[in-house]
Structure formats: C-alpha cells, structure tokens
Design a protein around this nucleic acid. Structure first.
Lengths: 230, 230
DNA sequence: TGCCCTCACCCGACCGGTCGGTCGGGCACG
DNA sequence: CGTGCCCGACCGACCGGTCGGGTGAGGGCA
C-alpha cells in the first residue's frame, strides 16, 4: 500500500515504462553533476543518451520532471530503509550508522543525485517542491526520533534532537562536495569516520567537558579585527 | 601589500566606484537567495535597485561579475581574519570557535552570500572559478593547520586533519540551509553549539571510546533491504 | 561671474542567441 | 492496426548584453 498521496510515489505516475526511464534518470543526474543543471540542455542530454531531443519527451513531460525523479530516487528509498531499520529494534547508534552509510553509498553509486537534491530543489515547481519539503521533514523527523531514542536509551547524552540532527546532516551531506569515488576511503569507511566523530561528540562525557572551557560569554572576539568586517 | 595576484583582490578592479557598488552586491545576494540565481534576471535586479537594466552595467561588466563579487566579499575577509587570529597565539580550539562564529555571522548579516558561495561557484567562468578554488583550498589549509596545531598542543586527539576539517566544514556550512535570523538561537549561540559538538568529538577520550563498539566490519546491513536499493 | 567641458550616472529601445518544448509524421512489432 | 518508440524541423519566450544618447554636478578658465 502506497504512502500518503502528498508524499509522492516513485514511478507509478508513468504507468509501466520499462527500465530505460530509470537509466535516463541516472544518466541525467551524472550529466547534471558533470556539466551543471542549467548548463545541460535537453539537446545535450538526448545526445548523450543516443536519442534525439523530442524522444526525451516520450519519457518525461519536462526537464523539471527529470529533476523531480532524481529527487525521488534518492529520498524515497532513504525514508523506507530508515523506517525499516527503526522497526528492527537495533540500537539507535547502530541505526544512525546505517543511515550514514546509506548516504555515502548513494554518493558512490548515483553520481550527481545528492547535488541535485541539495542544490536544485528550489528549481522545482511549487507542487513538487512542497512534496519534497514533506519528504525532507519526514526524514529529518525520523533521524530526530532516532536521536531521541538514543538519549532515552542512555546511549547519548541529553541533546537537542533538532540541532543535533542538523549537525549530523551537515557532516554527512557535505561529503558530496569532497568525497571521491576511487579515493583512499570507501563509502563505508567514510561513513564510519563521520559517524564515529559524531558519536564521540554526542556521548556521555565521563569528565563533564574535560577539554577547553566554554568561552561563550568571554569571547568578544578580536576587537581590532571587528571594524574591518563590513 | 596585497596578496598573491592569483588569489584576487576585492575591489581594486573597478578603481574607486563609491559605496553603491557594494550595496548592489549585497542586494543581489539577498535577491538571489530569495528568488534563485537563474530565476533572477538582471532586469529584476535593476528594478529592485531602483534602476534600469543598462545602469547595472555601469557598475558590473556582467551578471557573472556580480556573482564573483559576492564570492569575494565572503571569502576574502574570512581568510584574512583567520590568518590574523592564527598569528595571535590563541589556543587552537579558540581559533576554531571564532572561525565558526565568523561563518554564522555572515549568515545573519549577508543573506544569500553563503548559498551563492556554495551552490553557484560552478557558474563562474574558468578563470574566476580557478581563483575561487585557490581561495577555498587556502582557507581549508588554514583550518587544517589549526587542527594540526591543536593536536600538537594536546588539545585534540590525533585525527586526520583533512577529514576532520571536512567534517567541521560540513557541520558549520550546512547551517545556511536551516539557520534563521530571528530564530531562537543567535549566530554566536549556534556557532557555540556546533563548535562544542565538534570539540567533544575530537577531544581526547578519557575512556577510549566508552560508547558503542566500532561495528565497522560486522555490520553488513540489513540484507533483506539491500536488493531494493537500486 | 559666466561659460564650457568632463565624467559619473542613468535609461528606452533593441538585438542575437539559446533553450525548453511542440508538431507532424515515420518505423516496427505484436 | 494500434501502440511504443523515435526524429527533423520549427517556434516562442526569455534573457544577458549593447547602442546611442540624456542629465547634471563639479571644475578649470577667461
């Protein structure tokens, strides 16, 4: 049984449409990644697909629809997988690690997808944009809930779930800017590095902030620099 | 004495050009933020500036030049301030905090600047893009060096400076996606939250990873989900 | 003081190119 | 003989950028 209609369904919009469509979506993402979304014309995409431009419109109603499908192909499995994981009764920390791994694997397997998702959602029309907004919020809540569960289980110290989720998202999502397939680190290793850093930051501190003292109020910063800050 | 020529200089290109130019740069950034870079025509920008389109070309040679100036107005002060801070002999952790604060303050004071810097650098022409690449790398090295210094000073546990810098950048830079001026947290408070989380993650662990055990090798994840991951 | 020239600043009207998208039709397979 | 798939040719809109010219404040000069 499908999701609530607002959230959107993957490829039921076009009824059957064989695997070619999905190939085109992946191809489009990697082309947009390489040459930029706005810099890539439909003509160019068709060329790379071995088609003429009008043929693309046999598979998609518009360029925006392609962009939207790229979005869906990322967020839908991510949400579903996260839900399943949470149902399995794993430790919250473990759930978080697997979520991070999911992200990093998309990075490796569907080049461009992450960039489109993070940098071009505003180019979607109002309806689709709203739909993606729902999906984003929904996924974020899942992560927040996992964090909250981790706190309740005593795995994490008491933290603000919202801010903490944002921080985790930042660390992980940012990787699309620097992660290279065929780099020294595999997606899984990268995921583990980031997750480990995050977990350490969020664990109970045996010594109650042993390191540098919180300099929040005292650090009115570098007065002689302030004025040259426009 | 100015920087190396490749790195670029702020507003010496146009010789004098009163403060109007800078106003236009800030206005453009906030407009691009609100309506999208490609969705904002020069006509529209002119309108919001109370000018006719040709008048814009009195101040800028092209739309790309505006984009470039937005980039510069962010990265130049950031680099200079970071260099100065490092020369002052503060504790590395303190230097990092101030750097994070810098980011968050730009977010509050120059809306749109961060988004342009992170999402539209690929729209710059080859020369300017290369120039910004230099600046990026340079700034990253400054942060990496600060991290290395922190390790040397015993403030941080031994970590990979490159990966750790990326993680920090992610946490901090991502804030442009969720931070709201007039939200509950000020830029400084937000900076402190993120910095604190980071520092905890990077501190010496008194108990050598007291929390969850590293599940890297064992966690071949959820086989029954794997196949539905395209 | 009055004149003119310069130059920063401004604009209505226009242009050329690009690009998303369409039209009408062709081919082949079940 | 429909239907999935494909295409050459075309169109309309938009947008970055230009052209040629206008205005007025300031400054040198007689």
């Amino acid at each position: 049984m499908p999701e609530s209609p607002l959230i959107g369904t993957a490829t039921d919009n076009p009824p059957v449409k064989g695997g070619r469509r999905e190939e085109l979506i992946v191809l489009a993402a990697s082309l947009f990644e390489a040459e930029g979304y706005h810099q890539t014309s439909m003509e160019r995409l068709a060329e790379r697909a071995g088609l003429a431009k009008p043929s693309l419109y046999h598979y998609f109603k518009s360029k925006e629809e392609i962009l939207f499908e790229i979005h869906l192909s990322f967020i839908q499995p991510l949400i579903q997988r996260q839900i399943r994981r949470m149902e399995l009764g794993l430790r919250p920390s473990q759930v978080l690690l697997e979520a991070v791994v999911d992200h990093m694997e998309v990075l490796a397997e569907k080049p461009g997808t992450l960039r489109m998702f993070f940098e071009h959602h505003r180019e979607l029309g109002p309806d689709r944009r709203a739909q993606m907004r729902e999906n984003r919020i929904r996924y974020r809540r899942l992560i927040e809930d996992t964090i909250t569960a981790g706190v309740a289980a005593g795995e994490l110290r008491p933290v603000d779930p919202r801010l903490t989720a944002f921080a985790l998202f930042g660390m992980v999502n940012w990787a699309y800017k620097w992660f290279h397939v065929n780099g020294e680190l595999s997606p899984r290793e990268t995921a583990y590095f980031l997750w480990d850093l995050f977990m350490r930051g969020v664990q109970h501190d045996g010594t109650e902030a042993a390191g540098p003292p919180p300099p929040l109020p005292s650090s009115e910063p570098l007065p002689e620099l302030s004025e040259q800050w426009p």
